[in-house]
Design a binder for these strands. Sequence first.
DNA 1: ATAGGGTTAG
Length: 803
Amino acid sequence: MAAPLVWRCIYGSYAPENLSRKRMEARNAAQAPEVSSKLRKKRSGKATQTHERTCLVRGVKPNSLTLLRALKAFADRGSMDDALYVFEKMNRSETYIWNVVIRGLFSSGLFQEAIEFYYKMENEGVRSDNFTFPFVIKACSELLCLVEGQKIHAKLIKKGLDLDVYICNFLIEFYAELGLIELAEKVFKGMDVKDMVSWNSMVSGYQAVGDGLSSLICFREMLDMRKKPDKFSMISSLSACSMEDFLRSGKEIHCQAIRSGLELEIMVQTSLVDMYGKCGEVNYADRVFSRIFSRNIVAWNAMIGAYSLNAHHLESLSCLKRMQEEDNLIPDNVTMINLLPSCSQLEALLIGKSIHGYTIRRNHVPHIVLETALVDLYGKCGVLKLAECVFGQMHEKNLVSWNAMISAYVQNGRNGEALDLFQDLWHVHHKPDAVTIAGILPAYADLALICECKQVHAYIVKSELVPNTFISNSIMYTYAKCGDLQSARKIFDHMIYKDVVSWNTIMMSYAIHGFGATSIQFFSEMKEKGLEPNRSTFVSLLSSCSISGLVDEGWEFFSSMKTQHGIDPGIEHFGCMLDLLGRTRNLDAARHFVEEIHVVPTARIWGSLLAASRKSNDVVLAELAAREIFSLEHDNTGCYVLLANMHAEAGRWENVKRIKYVMEKNGISKTIGCSTVEISGKRHRFINQDKSHTQKNTIYDVLDIVLREDRYVHSLNKFRPEDLIKRRAKSPETHSAKLAICFGLISTEVGNPVIVRKNTRICENCHNSGKKISQFTKREIILRDSKMFHHFRDGSCSCRDYW
DNA sequence: ATAGGGTTAG
């Protein structure tokens, strides 16, 4: 290892312990295999022997051509200890030899040392020239050290070297590398003479900071100046096109490439494949790719990426075989990284696992990107254990890795773990980005964590993620799912750019709250604005109709899907229509509908039928539907409970017993029903007959007052002494929902709605009470059960008593 | 004597 000797040469006994953290990082980076393959090649060129260089300098005149050649040779091949040994024997007043050493140090990855060597040069009064600075500046950009670079920049101005084309080009790159594109621009604009490198650096600089538009504008300007783009300009500008989804500009550049003959450059061809892939034109990508004369691994990888990105997953996987057979190429890390999303999408766990095995056998791991893709794969395939395993064993994690793991938890319904991980994220000093937020929000929505949702919303505003439509849509739906339809609406109204998803989301928000008519209004408004509805739009729309019982409208929209919008109804739409049929209590029609649709019914379809049969008390149909559901997902707790309740209501106790036995056998326990209400960030939880709350006396007093009338009517109609004893124990009068509502009433201000969350379906008794309490107290009560929202207002519910 | 390179996870 050269470094310590270099240090001795420069600083005598100066110990490397004094190295700053940054310097150490830079040095480690220089030694890391992925960074320094070029360097290693240089270093391991020839083993240097001490006596060789000793012989070399003995009796040779300082700065003779021999020494100069030796210095340059050592520096060029990265033998910096040898180079410095020679340097020490030379006359140090000459600028040239310093420049050689600085360049050598830089090429060996000794960036900090290169900079310090320059300062040593200044201190010794040696004149620096235009050849000195490029690599000093580049060292600063490698170390991402702004202050140092700006000091050098200031010196350049003083020395009058700041107009040198080479130096300016390096400065542009330096500022672009640090993301300070405005400063790069300033240097660029101040140049008297610009060469191709200047223009290309600017085009690629804009592209590197994610500003594809400016990159293309700069490219255009360059054309206007009658500069002929070279392959580097092409590569950067094509990348800018894919970034902004500018297919047209991409095609224009493609034409220029053909005209200038650059189309035959493999790198340009690869960039074209990539551009077409990212702009959604996989067929063009395919065409360019098939015309590449000698395809290398990068080109194959780009093609695989294009297939994968455009959901041509089978094609992307088949490339794995093709690249080996047709071109005799060995897949690398990038190949695997591009293939894994296809495996995730296809839920091809087995292929994914063999890729994982392959990468281990070929020593491709640890690799942060690869491992993150694996976390994603295992998450999407539902094997959380493996996702956790890969994530846990990662040597190094970045925000993307964390995001993948958080999403994996959320996608598998493990909201608690997702929230814990989200908390941990802050402790390892990662700041959540748009993807983190989009990943975690469904967990908040699911758990109805309104307070956390507000916190995240505040964070979004603070971190200026607001104009991001994607995030706004997500937070809008979270508010809606947390029961706060008002806030959801506010976000929708304030969105500058609303896409189809925004409209679908607001429609669905109103639908789950039972306001189907409003949802339909949004649909017409959306069409007026000229937006074309998609499949999901119709899910929102048909759900609205079924939830609000708008039967005729539902059928009309259903048929217009195909006739007016050319969308073939899918299973998700059939489900909505089945719900609609269930509402009309026309079970025969519903049964026929299931037979007519030419798809294999899913658990969701049978669930709709089950719900419909419950409403009509058709136990036979219910049993049929339930059996189908159990064959698909044997652990559907809600389904067992519903069936048992139906039998209980019909008085068939032997069936109730049978179901309970099956549940026990399958290890399924009834979910304990609980209701929660959130008061200033604290969640208060109630179970049936709960007496554990600190304010239990007040709560029960309130319950007594608001339900007095209810109980009176109840007892007149159905008074049977033997029931009374039974009821005492399991009285619906003290169900968790009622307790939560009462606590909500006394803990919130008049004028605000009481928001209650229940983990299981609300029972009929509580539903009736909800309506009555809303009338009696003149308060709005919003209750979310396992299916939907109930807005109780003035004695009626938004669900119109169907849920 | 001075230089830049395409494919990479959610």
